[in-house]
């Protein structure tokens, strides 16, 4: 924790630093390489889109960056902590404090109301007065009137707004979004991505987004392409290759 606090003071350090990241999956007969030697640095406050086709490895990369999984080789340094060396529980604690998520399929708990879904990460992180903060955020995403509704009673767009409110609830340093508009129609997708970008700006959060939607990607400060497990950055492709 001390180490983390110290590193946060050193604002110049990157939010995310990835070196030599390789991920392989063992199949019945042979081994499949999903990610191959990925190197990457993302600075604080940056918004980065990782674009690629289905099966290109972008979701696997997101999972590794967020510490949901551990790589076969290489290191991931998140907010100063080398997460591939942490135990699963340590990574969970890090996520509770520093990381927010938005998913393609919303991932709301169907049994809980909108308000309770947003309160959940606050309670898990032990943040005080979770209800007040959750209410404020739901107001902010335009669902102040729908606090007691359960996910089933909400439309797709509304569910994703609840998910966005939840993602920002614990005031994360970095937000990972996996195809946040993938399950929504164009118009709804547009308004949800507006909200996401606005909140991101307001809170000064670092944003890492995986998408195959070029238009959404274009709204991020930086775009990375991934194909067959190899990550390239158009503007700096040459540097990366070196």
């Amino acid at each position: 924790m001390n180490q983390m606090t110290d590193l946060r003071k050193a604002d110049a350090s990157p939010m995310l630093r990835v070196a030599g990241l390789t991920h392989k999956v063992r199949l019945e007969t042979d081994t499949l390489t999903i990610l191959q030697g990925v190197n990457l640095e993302i600075n604080r406050g940056e918004s980065v889109a990782i674009v690629g086709r289905s099966g290109s490895g972008k979701t696997t990369l997101l999972g590794l960056l967020a510490g949901l999984d551990t790589p076969s080789e290489g290191t991931v340094e998140l907010d100063g902590s080398e997460i591939s060396g942490l135990s699963e529980d340590e990574r969970a604690k890090l996520r509770a404090r520093r990381v927010g998520f938005v998913f393609q399929s919303f991932q709301l708990l169907p049994a809980l109301s909108a308000l309770e879904n947003v309160m959940l990460p606050l309670e898990l992180a032990g943040i005080e007065a979770p209800e007040k903060r959750a209410r404020d955020l739901l107001e902010r995403v335009g669902l102040g009137e729908r606090l007691t509704h359960t996910p089933r009673q909400l439309s797709g767009g509304e569910q994703q707004r609840v998910a966005i409110a939840r993602a920002f609830a614990s005031d994360p340093a970095i937000l990972f979004a996996d195809e946040p508009t993938g399950n929504l129609d164009n118009r709804t997708g547009q308004s949800v991505s507006d909200l996401l970008m606005d909140l991101n700006r307001e809170q000064g959060t670092t944003l890492v987004m995986v998408t195959h939607d070029e238009r959404l990607a274009a709204r991020c400060g930086r775009q990375l392409h991934i194909e067959a497990g190899v990550l390239t950055e158009p503007d700096t492709a040459r540097e990366m290759a070196d």
Binding site: L68, E88, D89, A92, R95, A96, V99, F101, L124, S170
Partner: peptide, 12 residues
């Protein structure tokens, strides 16, 4: 899986 993502440990 979601609770873990949101930061709950295995023990929790």
């Amino acid at each position: 899986a979601l609770l873990k993502t949101l930061g709950l440990t295995g023990k929790g």
